[in-house]
Design a protein around this nucleic acid. Structure first.
Length: 479
RNA sequence: GGCCCGGUAGUCUAGUUGGCCGAGGACGCCGCCCUCUCAAGGCGGAGAUCACGGGUUCGAAUCCCGUCCGGGCUACCA
């Protein structure tokens, strides 16, 4: 082990990543960047029957979108590859063989049915439900007999009796475990494939991982992996840090029953990666008693595992939305327009043209402070792209406004300069002449021109729409 | 059942060598200001018996014990 920090994120490629895994990835990435270390992406696809190319691509895409570029892994190269476990099967087999040879592992011929049956019995008798050591000391003859029956063995790790495994966790302190608590566990399935326990241990050693930062659900896996390292003769031990779990607003584990758990879903709803990163980092970590907004550079500088809390955090979209609004507002008109293109297209607005982009660039300053999610933009800008039909509330406001709208049209018709300033001047003068309050004067115009009662600022909107289209809509609404 | 972890306002949290905390910040919520709608912005407000019960102490969110609640693991899932 050298002194370069090497961390890894090891997702199972079962589709767009879970926000909890995204947070783990983020913490690892920040830690690596902060220490000038290496961030490794390792794909754990050993047992995934459902793994598909699309699901695999989705994982990579999510990480890229979040800006968590990996230094080693699929597509990035590295000296410790390959980085997909399905391509490393030989390593696990030989590691298992080696453990057997040295007496640290043994074949277990129990079928899953037998195991389940005995587990049920044990639980009924209030005994621990873990593996009972049935095949722990079979003779060669007994093994041969099972083989003759056609049974294929799984390989189990022989957990030492009467010992304590302890490690220092950066977030939880010292965690001791008695080996009685750890039943002999399977490291190689009967079909020859490795379990997570073996694969992760072998790869963390082979890839020279120095810090393992992962979810608290894997806390109990740590003493097992430590035991295996020891059995393999590895004396160096990585630093561990187990992060508190993320839960949903109902207090249950974060799951689809409650809402969106996949990064991809938030992306499609119009959340910016900057907001997602900022929000995720706050779920379980804080810098001080007042700072909430952090740029990525600030996070790289200020993040620390020591300040990660121990209590589970609820994923609450409110704060995510607030941060998203903040980051949207920080965008330039050009950048925001570009971000809005796909959302407009998805809403059926043909913004994916030079002209469309130009229009979006022009309205961007008008909508920028009104958005919490990019997906909220299409309804606000639609009137610039297509003819409008007043919605219910707008239609109501337009009742009995024919004469007024005709006057408005006449006033605007006379304008020589079609600027928001000139428009405002003319409309205010008209309102004053008629003794109308601003709201009374402008809402009917808004309704006629945008088809809705909520829109970007009126005068600027009219300027963008252009004189011709504005007059046409006023005329249409006064018929 | 066993082992381990957690419990500060609706939410994220500050607080960890006990006193500066009759508990600070942020989101959300309510009100006011600004105002052409909606936002943004500014100002102000409500909201926490620091899970509960004991104890130690001149003094506890912070230390000790117990209880309750929630969670993780206990798989040939990861």
């Amino acid at each position: 082990m050298n002194d370069t920090v090497r961390v890894r994120i090891a997702p199972a490629p079962s589709g767009s990543i879970h926000v909890g895994n995204a947070r783990s990835a983020l913490y690892n990435w920040l830690f690596a960047r902060q220490h000038g270390g290496v961030f490794v992406l390792r794909v754990e696809d050993t047992d995934q029957k459902r793994v598909t190319d699309e699901a695999y691509a989705a994982v990579l895409e999510d990480l890229r979108w979040l800006g968590l570029q990996w230094d080693e892994g699929p597509g990035a190269g590295g000296d410790f590859g390959p980085y997909r476990q399905s391509e490393r099967l030989g390593h696990y087999e030989s590691a298992a063989r080696d453990l057997i040879a040295r007496g640290h592992a043994y074949p277990c011929y129990c079928t899953q049915e037998e195991l389940a049956e005995r587990r049920k019995l044990a639980q009924a008798a209030k005994r621990p439900p873990g593996y009972d050591g049935h095949c722990r000391s079979l003779t060669d003859e007994e093994c041969a007999a099972y083989e003759a029956e056609g049974r294929a063995p799984a390989i189990r790790f022989r957990v030492p009796d009467d010992a304590t495994v302890a490690f220092d966790d950066v977030v939880r302190g010292t965690v001791p475990t008695r080996t009685e608590q750890i039943p002999d566990f399977v490291i190689l399935r009967s079909d020859g494939s490795p379990t997570y326990m073996l694969a992760a241990t072998v790869d963390d050693i082979a890839m020279d991982i120095t810090h393992i930062i992962r979810g608290e659900d894997l806390l109990p896996a740590t003493p097992r992996q430590l035991l295996m390292r020891e059995a393999m003769g590895i004396t160096e031990v990585p630093v561990f840090g187990h992060l508190p779990l993320l839960i949903s607003p109902d207090g249950r584990p974060l799951s689809k029953r409650w809402g969106d758990v996949a990064v991809d879903a938030y992306r499609r709803q119009g959340f910016l990666p900057e907001a997602m990163v900022n929000y995720l980092v706050l779920l379980g970590w804080s810098y001080d008693d007042r700072t909430n907004v952090f740029s990525v550079d600030e996070l790289i500088e200020k993040f620390s595992l020591q300040r990660v809390g121990k209590n589970p955090a609820t994923f609450d979209v409110n704060k995510l939305e607030w941060l998203n609004g903040h980051y949207i507002r920080s965008k330039s008109a050009g950048d925001l327009a570009e971000e809005l293109v796909p959302f407009c297209v998805a809403a059926g607005i043909p913004a994916d043209t030079d002209e469309g982009r130009a229009t979006l660039r022009a309205v961007a300053p008008l909508v920028v402070e009104r958005l919490k999610r990019l997906s909220e933009a299409p309804p606000m800008v639609r009137f610039l792209f297509e003819e409008v039909t007043p919605d219910e509330r707008a239609a109501k406001v337009l009742e009995d406004q024919r004469d007024y709208l005709v006057e408005v049209a006449q006033a605007l018709e006379r304008l020589e300069k079609w600027t928001s300033v000139a428009i405002e001047e003319a409309l205010r003068a008209l309102a004053a002449g008629r003794g109308l309050k601003p709201k009374q004067a402008f809402q009917p115009i808004r309704a006629a021109v945008t088809g809705t009662l909520v829109s970007p600022p009126l005068f600027e909107s009219l300027e963008l729409l252009g004189k011709k289209r504005t007059l046409a809509r006023l005329s249409a609404a006064s018929k």
